[in-house]
Structures are given as structure tokens and as C-alpha cells.
């Protein structure tokens, strides 16, 4: 899925969080949005995923704006998946959580069971399928949340600081799963992170977002080795204090 964001503005009260965002993200790429906390990264993702309504500007999905009618709007929403920093798992076990998106799409039982089992297996969670969500560790919970997002095969996957505060093993598993999902489905991935190393490891292109504005967008080698904007250079080299 391609994404075209034009002139996006979003405020909370008097505070303008997004100040005219323009971005174009190509189908199938892994696009990282980097920036310090409070830059507006999560707000931007929440606008893309219809959780927030921007004041002005537009977002075009595969060249089309959001349909006004509820049914096509749900159909579009169902093509987008999201994993948050601290995911909420529903009451029930890991398998129930992973199968949630399939249930609400009326996927029939044999296929639902198969796809749920496959998704859990891909994240190394097969033995925890029947474990209650409330007793899972942070890393396990995040893997369940990831499996829950991708089991419905979204065309656009939004990842919001999805490995923050996780141990290296879980980070490794989840980053591997992102690469594999992107490779096997051709889905577009937008990764929001303040971890420049992760952006470098996963993304094809990176954008730096500072104080609600896009400072620079570039392919990974160019962005990290030859940044055009001094703020990007400061951010990449770690000189930028945040």
C-alpha cells in the first residue's frame, strides 16, 4: 500500500503537535520515522490509523482518500495493522488474542485455527498458546501483539516503538519477524522509533521528525552517512540532546 501525507496538522488544545507533514511512502518499503520523544511520531501514526482526526491536510491510501461511508472505511481500516509500544492484550489466552482479528472478519474455524497456530509458531510462541495474556512477560506480550497484527495480513503495518524496553533476544525475534513479513507479503511497514540503530537495521528509508515537522527524508546510507540537515547530523551522531 502506498501512503501520501499532505499538509497534515494536528493540535491538542493550544499545542500544535504536527505542523504540516508531507510524506510519500512507497508500496513494500520499510519506512522509519525517527525523532525524539514528543516530536509527534505517535500522533502521526494515530492519524494514519484513524485513531485521531487531523485538523487539516490529507492522507491518501493507494492514491485514494478515506471513504465517507462506514463499510468501505472499515474495509480500508482492515488493511492496516498496528503494534503499539505497550500493547493491550484482551482478557483470555494468547491464542484468543492472536485470533481476534480473524474472528471479527468471520474467518471460518479451520482456517482461523491454522492461521493462529502459524502466527504463534512464527513468533516462537506455540507452547504459550493456551497461556493467559495476563501472565505473559513484556516480550511475550509484544510477540503476541505482533502476531495478532500480522495474522490478518495487513497491507500496511504500523509499528510504534514496538521494541522499546525489550531485551535483545525479543528485539531480535521481532525485528526478524518484521523483515520476514515485509519480504513474504510485500506489505508496507512504517516504523516509528527513537532508536537510530533500529531504523538503520530495518528501514529502507528514514525520516527525521522534530517538533512536528519533517526535517529530512533519505535512503538509509545517505541519511546516516551524509545527512543534509545539521539537525539530522546531530541526531545521527548522538549530539542532539533529547
Amino acid at each position: 500500500m502506498s501512503l501520501e501525507v499532505s499538509g497534515l496538522v494536528k493540535s491538542f488544545g493550544a499545542r500544535e503537535v504536527l505542523r504540516g507533514i508531507d510524506l510519500r511512502i512507497e508500496p513494500g518499503e520499510i519506512f522509519a520515522i525517527a525523532g525524539p520523544s514528543g516530536a509527534g511520531k505517535t500522533t502521526l501514526l494515530r492519524c494514519v490509523d484513524f485513531l485521531l482526526r487531523p485538523e487539516t491536510g490529507s492522507i491518501r491510501y493507494d492514491g485514494a482518500t478515506t471513504p465517507a461511508e462506514p463499510a468501505p472505511a472499515i474495509a480500508l481500516r482492515r488493511r492496516i495493522g498496528m503494534v503499539a509500544q505497550n500493547p493491550l492484550l484482551f482478557r483470555g489466552n494468547a491464542a484468543y488474542n492472536v485470533s481476534f482479528g480473524l474472528c471479527i472478519r468471520d474467518v471460518d474455524e479451520p482456517e482461523l485455527s491454522r492461521r493462529t497456530a502459524d502466527a504463534l509458531k512464527a513468533l516462537g510462541m506455540s507452547d504459550l498458546a493456551a497461556t493467559r495474556a495476563s501472565v505473559l512477560s513484556a516480550g511475550e506480550a509484544q510477540r503476541v501483539a505482533f502476531a495478532r497484527a500480522v495474522v490478518v495480513r495487513p497491507d500496511l503495518l504500523l509499528l510504534d516503538e514496538f521494541t522499546a524496553n525489550l531485551d535483545p533476544t525479543n528485539v531480535n525475534i521481532l525485528e526478524g519477524a518484521v523483515r520476514e513479513y515485509n519480504r513474504s507479503t510485500g506489505a508496507t511497514v512504517i516504523l516509528v522509533t527513537h532508536n537510530m540503530f533500529q531504523a538503520k537495521r530495518l528501514a529502507n528509508r528514514v525520516a527525521l521528525l522534530l517538533e512536528g515537522r519533517i526535517v529530512e527524508v533519505g535512503a538509509v546510507p545517505e541519511f546516516f552517512e551524509n545527512p543534509k540537515d545539521p539537525r539530522t547530523r546531530a541526531f545521527v551522531t548522538g549530539e542532539y540532546a533529547y
Binding site: F50, R77, G81, L88, F90, I104, R105, R148
Partner: peptide
């Protein structure tokens, strides 16, 4: 977050109500 999570997973209004009620 329960409502937001159900929403981003593709729930319609009725499915969202059932999810919240279940929680």
C-alpha cells in the same frame, strides 16, 4: 486502550461494544 485496540484490529461498532463488554 481496549476500544482503540479493537478499533485498529478492524472491529466495527457492534464488535467494539461486544469486546468492551467482554472486558
Amino acid at each position: 486502550r481496549v476500544k482503540d485496540t479493537a478499533f485498529v484490529l478492524g472491529a466495527d461498532r457492534y464488535q467494539l461494544s461486544i469486546t468492551v463488554l467482554r472486558e
